[in-house]
Write a protein that binds this DNA or RNA. Structure first.
Length: 488
RNA sequence: GGCGACAUAGCCAAGUGGUAAGGCCACGGUCUGCAAAACCGUUAUUCCCCAGUUCAAAUCUGGGUGUCGCCUCCA
């Protein structure tokens, strides 16, 4: 018996049993494609992927939508702010459209590398300008807006429930305001449509009933979520930063426009933080991408495992020693699976598998507690009362959530086999690439060491191994007489 | 300035009233000429500090210290 799926809801600040009729409509805030997504962004998508997989495991169908934000929002709320897409284009000497395509592509590559399932829809903001204009028009018609010199604004004073979701105190927000109010009536009012500057043509702008301009920063998610999902949405996710501004504004504009509840269940992922606890952020230039990880020889799935070490609602500290320990953990997990599991798939009763995975499902369904779920997997692997067949079958099921390719045998392409001139078999492993001459030198040292070992000249063979270490090579003597060289 | 979160072993962390999960590292053992790998085992009388509630507190309350986040685009 698996327990019912329980999930934290930001709206109630408590863990609730999740219920839905059949299909779950789920909207997750996606990337703005003006630059690389860093691994902190990826942490949120991994959390949402676990949510998606847990929903499916609990028997729900999922209709999952993730937006691609390819409209340039401003870097700040004042007129002086630059458009991020335009800045990206300027930086790389390309058009904004090229920039959007480039970073959409790398985003897709990244999520694929992390075994993140694709949602049912990936709508792009620029394909939905008419829907956004229609929603703004509705809000205008219903009297929730006012117009200033630079745009059409949502009047939060007309929506008394505005403060409810994030439990805001408008007076206090006012007191802390650091931004230029411009002509806004209230600090919490936000733009629905911005007019293009009169003296400058923007790279991305559209005609509207109110003049040439571009959509405000919150309208796209609202317009697109309502186009692809039925209201109220069952689930809406995003990063923790979205609670106070983005999601609060979304609720206001949607509920004002439709008169109906926007979304039932909200989940927010916490930050990946740097060693001092500061969040990884693009604007601070403090970030690591998946490609950087890969260059350092870290398997993306080791990063996925790293994300499971903390609960999604807790900040997770990132460090290089941390990611290396995750890589180590990932390697040893796969080795355990390979060595302890039987070679063939077996048909075991699902009751028995669920029994073996009791602790695992209890953890997953308890608000996606992946640290506990992983602990359950380690405990299961060490449990002598569970057979190898059962372990393998259980891991296959657990991997529908973990998606760590636990049963997949690694392709041997990172392993190179060479025969030295002395006839020794040398197997090269490891992530670093070495030049041909470097490899040749390693081979000759391996030969020399082998000769020394045959003469039982241990001092010489140890010296030669040290020499290899100095070159960044760890030599292991294998049972079959070959030498494995790990390049570091 | 306002609001909020967090503080658990060397590191990453789970645990929200019943006597400290798990991973990595380290250490010991088996194996090895020695190593490496693998396997087995060990590692927090204690959860930032002080006071309180309770039969019982890492978990609740009050105070203090520290770190971070949000209030501006942001996962």
């Amino acid at each position: 018996m698996r327990p019912a799926l329980r999930l934290f809801n930001t709206a109630s600040l408590s863990v609730e049993e999740f219920k839905a009729d059949g299909t779950v409509g789920m909207y997750c805030c996606g990337p703005t494609v003006y630059n690389y997504q860093h691994i902190g962004n990826m942490r949120t998508y991994i959390f949402e992927d676990i949510l998606r997989r847990a929903l499916k495991a609990a028997g729900f169908k999922v209709n999952h939508v993730v937006n691609i934000t390819d409209v340039g929002h401003l870097t700040d709320d004042a007129d002086s702010g630059d458009d991020k897409m335009e800045k990206g284009a300027e930086r790389e000497g390309k058009t904004v459209w090229d920039i959007a395509q480039k970073y959409t592509n790398t985003f897709m590559q990244n999520i694929d590398a992390l075994n993140i399932e694709h949602p049912e829809a990936f709508p792009r903001a620029t394909d939905h300008i008419p829907e956004m204009i229609a929603m703004v028009q509705t809000l205008i018609d219903k009297g929730f807006t006012y117009t200033t010199d630079d745009g059409i604004y949502f009047d939060t004073a007309k929506f008394p429930d505005y403060v409810k979701f994030a439990r805001l105190d408008p007076e206090q927000l006012m007191a802390g305001a650091r931004i230029d109010m411009g002509e806004k009536h209230s600090n919490t009012d936000f733009a629905l449509w911005k007019f293009s500057p009169k003296d400058k043509k923007r790279a991305m702008e559209w005609d509207s009933p109110w003049g040439v301009g571009f959509p405000g920063w919150h309208i796209e998610c609202s317009a697109m979520s309502l186009k692809y999902l039925s209201q109220p949405l069952d689930i809406h996710c995003g990063g923790a930063d979205h609670i106070r501004i983005h999601h609060t504004n979304e609720i206001a504009q949607v509920e004002a426009a439709t008169g109906k509840k926007f979304c039932r269940h909200w989940l927010h992922g916490e930050w990946l933080v740097m060693e001092k606890g500061e969040k990884m952020s693009k604007s601070k230039g403090l970030f690591v991408t998946l490609d950087v990880l890969k260059k350092e020889g870290i398997n993306p799935l080791a990063y996925r495992l790293y994300c499971f070490s903390a609960h999604y609602r807790s900040p997770l500290k990132f460090s290089w020693t941390g990611i290396e320990s995750a890589a180590q953990s990932y390697a040893s997990l796969k080795k355990q699976v390979a060595s302890s599991a039987a070679k063939t798939d077996s048909d075991l009763s699902s009751t028995r598998i669920d029994e073996v995975l009791t602790a695992f499902w209890a953890a997953v369904n308890d608000d996606l507690n992946m640290p506990r779920a992983l602990a359950a997997i380690w405990d299961m692997l060490k449990d002598g009362s569970i057979t190898a067949d059962e372990k393998r079958a259980a891991l296959k099921i657990a991997d529908t959530i973990l998606a760590l390719d636990l049963l997949k045998v690694e392709a041997a392409d990172s392993v190179t086999e060479k025969i030295s001139s002395g006839g020794s078999k040398v197997v090269f492993t490891g992530s670093k690439e070495f030049s041909d001459e470097h490899v040749t030198r390693v081979l000759s040292i391996v030969d020399a060491r082998k000769a020394a070992k045959l003469e039982k000249n241990w001092a010489e063979s140890d010296r030669l191994r040290d020499e290899l270490v100095a070159m960044g090579v760890i030599a292991k003597d294998m049972k079959d007489g070959s030498t494995e060289c790990v390049l570091k």
